[in-house]
């Protein structure tokens, strides 16, 4: 059982890495590969590396994060990301101090606007980080959300 899980994980991971590296994959084709490692890692840098190939992000004013300053209920924190950066490929939402920081990643086609909105769970007060990948570069912005009651159970 363990061996099987391992094989599955490593196979999927390497195939995708090769294909993406070769620039063969359109967002549609990547679809089958949910980035398991990025979602399960406890380290934000690792998550970004897995998703975008780099943990280096350039801070920018051209990403705006709409989220409450104080979230009374950490189980439901509305987060909207808007960005005017040209050619956005992906937008990731990260809650810095969650056990597994990566909350969501959105792959956008050419005709999608630089906007996504959803609701996430936050374990405690921390920064919400939005990472936008465009033209092979990663940009980021952050906003602190104070959480009164954590929302990850446990």
């Amino acid at each position: 059982m363990q061996r099987r899980t391992f094989l599955k994980g490593s196979l999927a991971g390497s195939t995708v890495a090769v294909a993406v590296g070769a620039g063969l994959l359109t967002p549609g084709a990547v679809m089958a590969a949910w980035p398991k490692r990025a979602f399960e890692t406890e380290d934000m840098q690792t998550a970004m590396k897995d998703l975008f190939g780099t943990a280096q992000t350039e801070p920018t004013d051209d990403i705006s994060i709409k989220a409450p300053d104080i979230a009374e209920n950490g189980a439901v924190v509305p987060v909207s990301i808007t960005s005017g950066i040209a050619g956005i490929e992906e937008i990731a939402i990260i809650a810095e101090k969650n056990g597994t920081p990566l909350a969501a990643n959105f792959k956008l086609a050419d005709n999608a606007k630089g906007f996504v909105s959803t609701r996430i769970k936050m374990a405690k007060t921390s920064n919400v980080v939005a990472v936008v990948k465009a033209g092979g570069k990663a940009y980021s912005a952050r906003k602190e959300v104070k959480v009164t009651i954590g929302g990850c159970g446990g």
Binding site: P27, V30, P35, N98, L102, A103, F106, K107, V116
Partner: peptide, 8 residues
Amino acid sequence: VLAQWGPA
């Protein structure tokens, strides 16, 4: 849009 979500 393809949204990839975690449990958060």
